[in-house]
Design a protein around this nucleic acid. Sequence first.
DNA 1: CGGATTGTTTTTAACGTTCAAAATGCTGTG
DNA 2: CACAGCATTTTGAACGTTAAAAACAATCCG
Lengths: 344, 344
Amino acid sequence: MATLKQVAAHADVSVQTVSNALNAPHRLKPDTLRRVTRSIELLNYKPNRNARSLRTSAVELIGYCVPSWPHGQTHLVMDQFLHALCTAAERTGRHILLFTAPTGIDGMPVYDDLHARRLVDGFVLSQTETHDPRHGWLKEQRIPFVSFGRVWKETTQPGPYVDVDGAAGCATAVRHLYETGRRRIAFLSWPRTSGLAEDRLAGWRTTCKELELPTKDLAIRCPEDMIDEGARATAKLLDAGLEAGTPVDGIVAISDILALGALRELTARGLTAGVEVGVTGFDDSPLASVVSPALTSVRQPIDRIATELIALLTDSPAPADPATGGTERLLQPELVIRGSSAPG
Amino acid sequence: MATLKQVAAHADVSVQTVSNALNAPHRLKPDTLRRVTRSIELLNYKPNRNARSLRTSAVELIGYCVPSWPHGQTHLVMDQFLHALCTAAERTGRHILLFTAPTGIDGMPVYDDLHARRLVDGFVLSQTETHDPRHGWLKEQRIPFVSFGRVWKETTQPGPYVDVDGAAGCATAVRHLYETGRRRIAFLSWPRTSGLAEDRLAGWRTTCKELELPTKDLAIRCPEDMIDEGARATAKLLDAGLEAGTPVDGIVAISDILALGALRELTARGLTAGVEVGVTGFDDSPLASVVSPALTSVRQPIDRIATELIALLTDSPAPADPATGGTERLLQPELVIRGSSAPG
DNA sequence: CGGATTGTTTTTAACGTTCAAAATGCTGTG
DNA sequence: CACAGCATTTTGAACGTTAAAAACAATCCG
């Protein structure tokens, strides 16, 4: 494996000149640059990143803690997210280093260790919890990080974040169902403990109010994100609607999994999603396009999220430029319309 | 951030002694060791990995190329796999570095680059294709790697691998259906181009022959791994069975997704999976336990796979010990029985 | 008691890069 | 022609660690 020294000898210049050819080519006389470049190519020289990092104390690696999920639950778009994050990191010459850690504050020693040993420059957090302690901790330790997801119910965010406007996403879903003629639109949610859930729920409620649609008894909290729970909640909604003579004709689900449950319950009752009842999901997971009728779903702009995460983490500290907007980015999701809400 | 030098000064020993305290504690006098250890803790010293790597030229990082999937397809167990891989790597003090690369031979320069710049020591490959060119290439370049998945249709494997005995998995599934009284067991497969598919298909066919069950016209190749395709194939099987007066009563699917299609078609026809027809999937993805009836599925031993991958990659070159079995490991999957094959 | 043996600690020199400062060469100016 | 000013290149030192060899200390044996 060629080293700077060997390239220098080959090109008959000093070691530093070769280094400059790579890191500050404008400093070299065009002629020298050409000669050095040729030697680099000839010897197939690749700079040793460890030596570089030792000198500059920057490793160009970003830590990401691979979430471990409660049994039966999976992040259906995690592979998309990781791919996007990698790609975004690579665009800046960086890479993603995976690690595992206990959840919550118990995991912080691991983060600290990775940073102290100089395995990573900083972290991308995801799976932000309502009172996530990690952000404050990292900030206190002055360890660089950026979060995918806001820290809910805190007055101030303890660091830079990128998030998706879940309220807006659900609002769009409600409006879409309204435009396709639905007038009694229910919401399948998660337990109250999740800030994420409250955000999306609020989007549904506000928009229904705006459109003068009913909301009473139309929001159901499923204890877990499972198909069965979605089906059960849907059954409850349909039954109550029939009894009262005001049938539900739209269902906005907080996740694709719950929406799938709704689809299943509809099918079981001989109803067709997209005809009698419009259904939307959230995340546009791979499942959405694979079921039938295919599921209308709110898609998070994953590539954009990844790009912004990397930018916030690696760009020079907080350009107070109001145009790019400091260190907080709220991105708008997009509704992908398929058969479950509008047949044909 | 404390360095060896500072710790050495604090403990009043030489730098090398501190280094030894960490890397070869048996060489120190117990008394010295105690003193040094105390200083290390007091100063909260963490060795700088870059400096270490520079000196030893081992980075303790393993590269893994995050697969980018054709639209609509996802590896439903990828997050489980990554988690297991991380954990296994961490047990040996290593970590996983993610990267992206073009598929096939076009991606090799990326692998070469990462290795040459000393960002990684070696690679874990997955998504092995039938004539995967990567293995041979890496071997030629003497870049360490290990593969999850065999290279099919080659006389010799160009490197160490771990794989799951798909034929055995399907055989188990067939036997299980047989034991629950099924006598006409079909197989939902993928296109012929996949070695993986042929392996699993062979397991089904052989076992049916052994049990003297019919196989003619009972294997269907779905062009894509999608729920719809599984449903369509199932419909075809059920129709043909009815016509001939010999109804299909068992379905072994090569993936959970296809099995889900089978479940859907059964439901659509008013049949109950696990009662009239037994259905099994492959991979035990999160979906399997979340549908209803829950899906019986062949589970790959993911943790074991990850452990063996890391072991093969990092252990001293090929212990020719026949007990642990050289550099090729074929692991046995396990059938997870749920309602889709045996109600109640 | 001398010398070999073993156990413990220190010294010296690298690993491959970049930073900061110094040196060199060149151009133009008075 | 002396010299300031600039562009280009080289020198020397450092980043934090470990390998190898050397030094030192303690123990054993005849």
